[in-house]
Amino acid sequence: MPVIDSHGCPLDVEITGPTEAPVLMLSSSLGTTKHMWDPQMDAFNAKYRVVRYDRRGHGKSGVPKGPYDMEMLGRDAIAIMDGLKLDKINWLGLSMGGMEGMWLGAHAGNRIDKLILSNTSAHYADKSMWHARMNAVGKAGSVASIADMVINAWLTKDFQTAQPGTAARMKEMMIATPVDGYLGCCAAVRDMDHREILKNIRVPTLIIAGSKDPATNIAAAELIRDAIPGSKLAIVEAAHIANVEIPDEYARVVLDFLGSK
């Protein structure tokens, strides 16, 4: 797995799939690593050269002191594209990965063939939730302090009961996130406002929303769809980390869009 330097921050990158296939680049949720996408890798690798990575502050990537912002995180993605000599990619980002995708679509649309923005939001008008979350993590010195609350937004109660091992692995992934990295990324989400740039996205775009997602609801997805010319909205029966909760259906929705004209 290569390590790509982005403005002094090492980013851990994994590349799989056929060498000559079109590239699908994956960006995950706050508090997860590239392994969030494990449920889709067989399906994606069958048709695409898949690039996934740990964003700064997460997994095996560097943890520079925050705060971070969306431009910084978007430029990390561009640094990976440049480092791997990728002129164009398809982008699939979930939650925070979708926020990065909006920035990329508006500022580096020439690098993107198709854009998928999953379980995400363009803006948080009420910052109090982010302040409270950051205060709790900072005071405790661990992401474990909010893990129970967050996992209940990530995955429905029914899924957690039916698939306790998967739910436990997702919770462990969250708790392992370095505090400085988590707080740095929380600041980026808290301060983000993509509403004015959405109209500048001109690449084919799909928005995926979970009908049971309390973190980024259907109204947030509809706002993005209405602002991006020609974009489409797919609603799936899942909570926030939709790709983990409904892995096969999620892969089908993504691949159908990527394969469409």
Score class of each variant (00 low, 15 high):
Asn243Glu: 10
Ala234Gly: 04
Ser231Asp: 06
Val50Cys: 12
Asp38Gly: 01
Ala242Met: 07
Ala108Ser: 11
Pro247Arg: 07
Leu255Glu: 12
Ala147Gln: 10
Asp213Ala: 06
Pro2Phe: 00
Thr205Ile: 02
Asn45Glu: 11
Glu237Gly: 05
Ala168Lys: 14
Lys212Tyr: 09
Pro64Cys: 10
Thr156Ser: 15
Ala106Gln: 06
Lys85Gln: 13
Glu249Gln: 13
Gly66Gln: 04
Met1Gly: 11
Glu249Thr: 09
Phe44His: 03
Gly59Thr: 04
Ala221Lys: 03
Asp213His: 09
His240Asp: 11
Ala162His: 03
Lys47Asn: 14
Thr32Pro: 10
Val189Met: 15
Asn45Asp: 12
Asn119Trp: 06
Leu11Arg: 00
Pro178Gln: 05
Asn110Ser: 15
Ser142Tyr: 09
Ile15Tyr: 11
Trp103Leu: 08
Tyr124Pro: 00
Ser27Asn: 15
His58Asp: 10
His107Pro: 11
Ala167Arg: 05
Lys60Glu: 14
Leu198Ile: 08
Leu84Gln: 07
Asp126Thr: 02
Ala167Asp: 08
Ala187Arg: 07
Gly57Arg: 04
Met25Arg: 11
Ser145Pro: 04
Arg202Leu: 10
Ser28Met: 11
Gly74His: 11
Met70Val: 04
Val189Tyr: 09
Cys185Gln: 14
Lys60Leu: 15
Tyr53Met: 15
Lys261His: 08
Pro247Asn: 06
Ala162Cys: 05
Asn243Gln: 13
Ala215Gln: 09
Leu117Gln: 03
Trp37Asn: 03
Pro18Met: 09
Tyr68Arg: 01
Asp248Tyr: 12
Ser61Cys: 05
Leu24Ala: 08
